[in-house]
Design a protein around this nucleic acid. Structure first.
Lengths: 140, 140
DNA sequence: GTCAGTGCAAACCCTTTGCAGAAAG
DNA sequence: CTTTCTGCAAAGGGTTTGCACTGAC
């Protein structure tokens, strides 16, 4: 299992390098906890995971690292709640189902959801993404 | 024009009462500035508008009032940016086009945008809304 | 006089920034 | 040695909360 651990470390390191990210101790630590977890995670949750292990990493570094990973395409930010950054390790095109009562966030496969009728854009403007959030609540 | 002003005050007061909101001085003041402005506005922008006039209202009250108005259906919250609550005075079904470079936010008529393939929901869960955000940026 | 409802100062929490220090050239 | 990059303490800014106060009955 220490072997598995070392293997994971190597995998993460390689992945960072492949994406042009210097694999520092903190980043590898964060990456190991990140890619081995739920698909949706906040900086706080990740910080807790990292420091529950052996890693000693500050909150600011977790934020900065998540931002860096997102900029490099290893992560995607999901905007469903103001005042809360949620990151998604699933970077393929897909949408989200968000339960406002429980905070539960689930993926909806992109191919299941079809959007038509996008407006024409003026020149000089390009689409970076179409995000669909289906908001649900517990009936009552 | 003082007459118009008084007419607006009456209209806003009536509207609040109709929606089950006690029309206090602060709320009417806020409402007058709110329904007579751009469709998309943040608490900060609204506070500035209110206090540029005669109104003396604290920031906290603006936040609380916006939250109350939204809960009562006079407003709708638009989630396009984490760390920033934007309110929309247009409460009819529609979607948004968001320019991440300029912060510009525009409406897309709901009838122009068709979504199909929503997943079946388990019982006890109901949809409160389907929000589509088309993110764009200035090309280059 | 009592009680529900309101407004705001202060507290809170998430995020960003500025800088000391490390690593690379 | 100089330059670039990294990590984090402290600062920042948007939002919420707890309580004094007001108005209604």
């Amino acid at each position: 299992m220490n072997q598995e651990h070392e293997q994971l470390r190597k995998d993460v390191t390689a992945r960072l390098v492949r994406n042009g990210i210097t694999p520092t101790r903190q980043r590898v630590e964060i990456g190991m906890r990140l890619f081995d977890c739920d698909k949706h995670i906040t900086a706080d949750q990740l910080l807790e995971r990292v420091n529950r292990g052996n890693g000693e990493v500050s909150k600011a570094t977790v934020y900065n690292t998540l931002g860096l990973f997102a900029a490099k395409g290893l992560l995607r930010e999901v905007v469903v709640d103001p005042g809360k950054q949620i990151f998604d390790t699933n970077v393929s095109p897909h949408h989200h189902l968000y339960n406002v009562d429980t905070g539960e966030l689930r993926d909806i496969e992109s191919r299941d959801l079809v959007v038509s009728g996008l407006p024409a854009l003026e020149t000089g403007i390009e689409i970076t993404g179409v995000d669909i959030v289906v908001r649900v609540r517990n009936a009552g």
